[in-house]
Structure formats: structure tokens, C-alpha cells
Amino acid sequence: MKILIVDDSSTMRRIIINTLSRIGYSDVVEGEHGKAGLEKLAQGGIEMIITDWNMPEMDGLEFVNAVRGQNSSIPILMVTTNAAKEDIVAALQAGVNNYVVKPFTPETLKEKIESLLG
């Protein structure tokens, strides 16, 4: 299971990678913004995406829209500090499958990932 993590914070990417490895997912690729994420996605093999919202170059919402333009089935989990209801709804409407507000616990991330992977 190859997971793409898109976040402009290297610290946050590292925390997510760490959490993923603890729950058994160690095949991970990283992108520091939406554009980089799309490039990684184009390389193939990605089975799930975890993305931040607030990023330079291309933010998470634009990224999700772009992904959904070419792939309607890949599970996308948004992990962000944006916690207003209208933000969550906007992300879901763009095609995000589930939503986690930072700071998160490893248990929350694990639960969301497992529910997305069915």
C-alpha cells in the first residue's frame, strides 16, 4: 500500500510518516505542495492520499480538485488546521473522503485510514 503525503511542513510529514509506520504502512511518498503531489501521483502506484489544506504553490483544495479530475476512486484524507464547518463541507464537496483536524492523535489517524481502506 503506497501512500502519498502532501504537506508543506516537513515536521508534519515526518509525524504522519511515523504514525503510518507504527500502524503498518511504511511505503510512503511525499510532496510539499499540491503541484508536487500531482507529480508524484503521475508516477503511479499511489493507493491513498493524505493531504494538508494550507500550502504554497497549490493548496490542498485545488490539489483535491485536480486529483478528482483524473481519478475518482483513490481515497483522500485531508489533515488540516482548518476546522470550520464550511471548510470541512467544501473539502468533502471537492472530493475528500474523510477529514482530520490537527493536532491529531495516532489513534484518530489510524481509525480514519482503516475506515477509508475498508
Binding site: 515536521t11 509525524i15 490537527k102 492523535t105
Partner: peptide
């Protein structure tokens, strides 16, 4: 692991 998770404060 707990300490690593707490490092989220930096991004926030």
C-alpha cells in the same frame, strides 16, 4: 512516540 506526536505544535 508521544513526544514526536506533540511536535505538531510547530506546524500549528
Amino acid at each position: 512516540f508521544e513526544a514526536m506526536d506533540l511536535m505538531q505544535f510547530q506546524d500549528i
